[in-house]
Every structure is written in structure tokens, then in C-alpha cells.
Amino acid sequence: MSEVKVYERPKSWMPNVSSHYCPGCGHGIAHRLVCEAIDELGIQNDTIGVAPVGCAAMIYDYMDTDYCEAPHGRAPAVATGLKTVRPDKIVYTYQGDGDLASIGMGEIIHAANRGQNITVIFINNAIYGMTGGQMAPTTLIGQRASTCPLGRDVKLNGYPIRVSELLAALPAPGYVTRVTVAQPKYIIKAKQAVKQAFQNQLDGKGFSLVEILSSCPTNWGMRPVEAFDWLVNTMMPYYPLGTFKDFD
């Protein structure tokens, strides 16, 4: 019987390297979607990634493309610098919710508002993963975190920020969509969105952001399967999937 290859690692994933992410972490899936989009669009040699500060800070250990580090939250500014000098390259940031929606809120709003022709992959796991599970700007009301042990209290902490809806209110950004990696059926859609966000840049259309609802079983205090269930049952109702803005 001849062998049929049904799956292989993406070409733009560093050969012979496994990721350090916890079992059931959504970062690994999101990385793969980015790699597949890069492979399918044939842009590996022309892509420059900007790494966040967060669990994905070492993303350049896994992705075989040019990569630049950014201070916590500043990836959209770094990407603006890269794209300004090299408009012929494909520039994208990969950022967590603490990185993008808290310390880096200024940079993302202004990059979006300039309509900067970059791609942003935004991983919303409702928690600060890397530093050990502190409350994020996206932590749900009542959700426990190490700095809100009794659950997020609106009176004290305000409401979880819906980044996609916020950015979609600006005139300049062209493509703003929310997807998830919670289940295979959603992953297929997430893949299309990620690819679309890179295609938009190739077409010179302008700012594209894909918010990916993701899991952090370690800091949510759940097993991987429970975490994906929680994502679907608790996170998705507050963060509805959908495309909030698209280039016509």
C-alpha cells in the first residue's frame, strides 16, 4: 500500500523544533495557522514578524522567517517602522491580550487608525499567561485570576475590553475579525481569516487584525478539554465571533 501524506508540519515552521507551550495551549495552533498562511501564499522569504512580550515572546524560535523583538505592547510601532522602510515586505505582529489591549493599547489604536498596511494576529486568552495568570484587560467579569482572586469586579476593574469592536469603530482599519481555535470547525474558519489578513497586505489594502480567542489551561486552572469547553461556553458569548469590518 502506498503511503499518503495527510498532514505535515508547515515549511515555515523551524525544522526539528517543538514548542514550549503547555498542553492544550492555543498559541501552538495559532502559530501553525500563521505558518500555513505564509506557506500557501509563498511569502516565507519576504515576511518579517514582530514578536510580543508574553508566552509567545520566543515565537522566532519556531517560525522560520525574519523576526524582530518588540518591547511589551510596542509591536505595532515596531511593525510601522519596518513597513515604512520596507513596504515591499510582509510585516505582521503576533500579540497577546495583555500586550495589545493593556500596555500596548495606544500603539494598536494608532497603527489601526493610520490604516498601516500590516497584519496583526491578536491572541485573546483572557489572562496574562507568561507572568502566571494575572488579570488581563480581557479577563471576563467574575473570572478568577491571581490578581483578582475573587473574580473580576466591574466596580474595581471595569469591563473586559472587546478589542475588535473597538477598532472596528475607527474609519481606517479595513479588516477586523474574531475567530477561535477552540474546535476544528472553528479552526478552519480561523485559518481562512489569518490567510485573508495576509492576502489583504499583499494586495496593499491596509490594516488587518485577526482576534483569535485562545486557551490558557494552565492559568485558567483547567484541563485542556475543560479549557476548550470554557472557551466555547463562557468566552464566546462575551466575545462573539464574526467579521466586524471588511474591505469592500
Partner: peptide, 13 residues
């Protein structure tokens, strides 16, 4: 904060 990080990205080229 943004301008120095734009310089970081621009200079990286």
C-alpha cells in the same frame, strides 16, 4: 514611546 519603537523597526532593516 512609539517613535523610538518605530525607529527600532525601521533601523532593523
Amino acid at each position: 514611546v512609539a517613535s523610538i519603537n518605530m525607529v527600532l523597526g525601521g533601523g532593523a532593516t
